Computed example of a mutant assay.
Amino acid sequence: MNKRREATSEDGVLTRIGQAIMLHRAGDREEARNRLSALWHEIGPHGDAFHRCTLAHYMADTQDDPRDELDWDLRALEAAEGFVTERPDRGGSAPGESSVADGPGPRHPLVALRAFFPSLHLNIAADYAALDRTADARAQLLRARASANALADGEYRQGLRDAIDRLELRIDRAAGRTA
């Protein structure tokens, strides 16, 4: 019974994040930001890494100031990096592989957190570009490209690669370089 209650609680957090995202996409940026902020405080600094990463990732999109957007994107990256660790599994995985993220709270597949990395680095690159921090933006683009290349082939990977290319072109144009 406790496992069922935990699963419902887990689904509830992701559902609430999804509802806030829908509000944002429908144009109610302030209400989305308010709900995500309340949920961020509810989850707390030691809450589930997947939830913290997801929430901060979307909270960044609700910000009006590019510096605030960067702060939230960095929080999302910190949450993902803090819990994605390589360690020998004590169970059925091959040596050196781990199928879960470490940390307090529920466990999530590493692949779910790892799939965030290209998007997180891309968002941070865009934040730096908006703040005219070109060198930082380019460094994040390199990280975005490397982590996208580590993903399995598919639409998500290709979409990320295309977005990385578009941002790189935009940065080059802003710097007066031609491609």
Rank of each mutant, 00 (worst) to 15 (best):
L55I: 07
A56E: 02
M59L: 15
A60C: 13
A60Q: 13
T62A: 06
T62L: 06
Q63A: 06
Q63G: 01
R67V: 04
E69Y: 01
L70T: 03
D71G: 01
D73R: 09
R75A: 06
A76W: 07
E78I: 00
G82I: 03
T85A: 06
T85Q: 12
T85C: 00
T85D: 04
E86I: 13
R87I: 11
R87T: 12
P88V: 07
D89T: 10
R90A: 13
G91W: 15
G91H: 13
S99K: 11
D102K: 07
G103M: 05
P104I: 02
G105T: 04
P106Y: 00
R107L: 14
R107I: 01
L110I: 13
L110Q: 10
L110C: 02
V111N: 04
V111W: 04
V111Q: 12
A112T: 08
A112M: 14
L113D: 00
R114P: 01
A115P: 00
F116L: 05
F116V: 00
F117N: 03
L120C: 09
N123T: 11
I124Q: 05
Y128S: 01
Y128F: 15
Y128Q: 05
A129Q: 12
A130H: 14
L131Q: 05
R133C: 07
T134G: 00
T134S: 07
A137K: 06
R138H: 03
R138N: 04
R138M: 11
L141A: 08
L141V: 10
L141D: 08
L142Y: 03
L142C: 06
L142W: 05
R143E: 13
A144I: 06
A146C: 02
A146F: 02
A146V: 02
S147E: 12
A148N: 03
A150C: 00
A150I: 02
L151V: 04
A152I: 08
G154D: 08
G159A: 07
A163D: 14
I164C: 05
I164R: 08
I164D: 03
I164F: 05
D165N: 10
R166E: 12
R170T: 13
I171Y: 06
I171N: 00
I171V: 15
D172F: 01
